[in-house]
Write a protein that binds this DNA or RNA. Sequence first.
DNA 1: TTAAAATTTAACTCATAGGTTGAACTTTGA
DNA 2: TCAAAGTTCAACCTATGAGTTAAATTTTAA
Lengths: 201, 201
Amino acid sequence: MNFREARAAERRLNILKAAAKLFSEKGYHDATIEEIARELKYTKGSIYYYINSKQDLLFQCHELAMNLLLDNIYRIRDLGLAPDLMLKEVIKGHIETLMSEFNLVTVMLVSDYELEEEYARIIINKRDEYEGIIAGIIRDGIEKAIFRDVPVKVVINLIMGAANWIGRWFRPEGPMTLQEISQFYADYLVEPLLVRDKSRE
Amino acid sequence: MNFREARAAERRLNILKAAAKLFSEKGYHDATIEEIARELKYTKGSIYYYINSKQDLLFQCHELAMNLLLDNIYRIRDLGLAPDLMLKEVIKGHIETLMSEFNLVTVMLVSDYELEEEYARIIINKRDEYEGIIAGIIRDGIEKAIFRDVPVKVVINLIMGAANWIGRWFRPEGPMTLQEISQFYADYLVEPLLVRDKSRE
DNA sequence: TTAAAATTTAACTCATAGGTTGAACTTTGA
DNA sequence: TCAAAGTTCAACCTATGAGTTAAATTTTAA
């Protein structure tokens, strides 16, 4: 990649970030390409020199967000922790990725139905892969008798729902830091999975 | 209310239901008034004989959804149960109301940022009231030493997030009924609140 | 029966936003 | 230096959808 290509790639990324910001603030439809352009002191025409379509911009937000989440979960899977500790790390990592790339991930969570069929399939595949890894961790915990025998998919949806909602209410000025909250969530959401008192069985 | 007024009210309700359906399927912006009209074999002009604006229709979805949730929680509060049982009932009732009026509640959850300022305030007030009642139940449980001393608002957001996400994945054809799922959620989400073993303290 | 009130509709206005174009301007490298 | 390639922009096209209107049609009740 030469200098020109690098510069173009950087600009494409800036456009993507600006789009993510506006998409997450106002929703996909209410954010206009002109606003995205204005944010970067461009005109609309210049934006279209770098992108194909607004829909494509939305897709890239989804894709980048999912890639960040996948990178994170692969990293955690390779730590070789016990299932309960690993699941807690997954929850913490999910929440912290979610919030550190707030705009990107919010776009993905809020405007998933705006994605056109062909794009949506790609994202759904990534999401299935992500949830598949979590399912593997939980099943492993059940086999090792660390976790109770629970309906795995329901538990995953319960956890994802709780975690994904954080973007709707968390404010950094609040009484708890994000790290405190993600730790609290991890503990709270893993505890009901744990096999209680073995001696009573 | 005479016959004419009753009929007009009924039609307004039908329009609202059709709007909720389309808003929840396609999002506020992608659903058009003409589609809503077509759904009911009306023309756009007739719709405007009954409504003021599209925004107003959105607001009514939000308002009706919140009113259903509030009716439900008032009913439960008046049952006079112990805090842990009451909280479980609240979770079950929340999920079942959510799913029985899927379109209305989905509109509220998915397109809240589409509401204009003045309307949004009214809905936020109702939501605060709703969450205030749940907070009261949890605080009561803490005082009575049934619940651990937890950050109440964080717990409410955790529970609401988990429950509100159900609309995104639940399918009636799935392996569990909605009642089974709402019971599972209630148990799962209340358990971490319970004071463990009193004798060990 | 009939006139007023209620209801419906086709045809309209208007604003907006996605996307295109061709010319102008800038950068680059020989 | 200068021509080709890369980049920017104003002006434009077009589609769409919210909301209006005035006339036509239907309903109601005296």
